[in-house]
Computed example of a mutant assay.
Amino acid sequence: MGLTSDAVLASAAGCGLLLFAGTVWGWPRLAGPGPWPLAGRVALLLATQAVVFAAVGLAANRAFGFYAGWADLFGRETGQGVVVDHSAGGPGALRVTGTQAVRPGPGRPEDGGRIERVTLTGRTTGLASPAYVYLPPEYFQERHRTRAFPVAVVLTGYPGTAEALVDRLHYPRTALELAREGRTGPMVLVMLRPTVAPPRDTECVDVPGGPAAESFFAVDLPEAVRAHYRVSRTPGGWGVVGNSTGGYCALKLALHHPEVYSAGAGLSAYYDAPSDPTTGDLFHGDRKLRARADLWWCLDNLPPRPGSSLLVTSSKSGESGYKDTLAFVERVKEKKTARISSIILESGGHNFHTWRREIPATLRWLGERLGEERG
């Protein structure tokens, strides 16, 4: 049973209830003096607390998407690591591994769209990553068969799970509902985590001698998606959005690669790459690379991107980056780097509940800025 499955959570909760009931029932029988009754009481208390703690941890993991499975939790994940393409210059690939309907909603793709589980393998970087691709109903309708749809690349935080973008943050369902209500146009969503060389947090950096994470998102992913799906081939039709680490990556990709992404939205983003045990040494003494990873440096030193749009979000109470976000908005306006917008909530923590409140407005913002092509 998987770490995020209902069965595992229900089993842990059930064991906790049984141990609690057993403690209430057995406590009077273990109330006597002596080492054995004392040991029994201690064992019951420790067992109950351990199981309750595990159940709470499992519930929190399901809610926030910290770890995708047992191997991810214990640092033994190897299945989706770096893939080396030994045929230099060989083509990248997008392979569909499964499909599912958008829930709740009609089962037919022509009515409710479809979500495809895919594996992306980069042509230039050799990196591979699982992803989910949401295709709107219009993609399958005959009258739209020559239409090339705009694309939003959606990134999780770190470590994050791609499934959480579907099941917890409800990106496909929200995009479908907004399009039905006429508040935005249909778009394709490519949903994945920025951790393309797990368990390492690469912060979407091309690490010297290591995984070229930025190039994967700037070159390989758009190339593979365009080759497989009927989507826009111009930067005006591509945007990128993410939360936390994914938000930092989204803003950086839009600033570094306006020829690929014309819009970037950072939900609860930060503005410089951290250095900690999860990242390792990202720059290997390369000062230029280190500077480019600092978004403040980018605003001061990169040329203006007049055709680009940026969106940042935060909350007055609950987000530690609130003041940085206000300063980032002012710096973009001062430097005239790009068009800048913001969503500022009165309160909201660094969590899924807050981001779900920001996603509808963010998707509408993207829809207003991403064009489409018609054949």
Rank of each mutant, 00 (worst) to 15 (best):
G40W: 02
L9C: 06
M191T: 02
S309F: 02
A128P: 04
W70G: 15
K288E: 15
A54R: 04
R356F: 08
A254N: 05
G210W: 09
V240A: 06
P274Y: 10
G126Q: 04
E116P: 02
W70A: 09
W70C: 09
Q100W: 00
R369Q: 01
L251P: 05
R292P: 01
L17R: 12
G98Q: 06
H256R: 14
A21K: 03
G90F: 00
S341D: 15
S129W: 02
T4C: 14
F64C: 09
G105D: 07
A269E: 12
P208Y: 09
F53G: 13
V83K: 14
L267W: 12
R226V: 11
G209Y: 10
S317P: 07
R331N: 01
G307L: 08
F64R: 13
P106N: 11
V332A: 14
G367N: 05
G239D: 01
M191W: 00
W70R: 02
A54F: 13
E346P: 10
P137Y: 09
T97C: 08
S232L: 00
Y134R: 11
G22K: 07
A88W: 11
N351A: 14
L17T: 11
E138I: 01
A21I: 12
E346G: 10
V332G: 08
P109Q: 05
G280C: 05
R226I: 01
E319N: 14
F53V: 14
L289E: 01
Y158C: 04
F74A: 04
L120F: 08
N61W: 11
T184W: 01
V8C: 03
L135V: 09
A47E: 02
P130S: 12
K335S: 06
E319F: 05
P198F: 12
V42K: 01
A10R: 14
R290F: 12
D201M: 11
P130Q: 13
V205A: 09
A31M: 10
K335L: 07
E259P: 08
A43K: 04
W238T: 06
A197T: 06
G371Y: 00
M187T: 08
W296Q: 10
A265Y: 07
N61H: 05
P306E: 10
D281T: 07
L255H: 05
V219W: 15
T234D: 11
W296L: 10
D72K: 05
V82W: 13
L17G: 11
G22E: 14
G122K: 02
P306N: 06
P194W: 04
T202Y: 07
A179G: 06
G375P: 06
F217K: 03
H256S: 14
Y322L: 08
G239Q: 00
H350V: 01
R143I: 04
H256M: 13
G89K: 04
L44G: 01
G321H: 14
G79D: 15
D272S: 13
A131Y: 08
D111N: 10
K335V: 08
G348E: 07
G185N: 03
L310G: 09
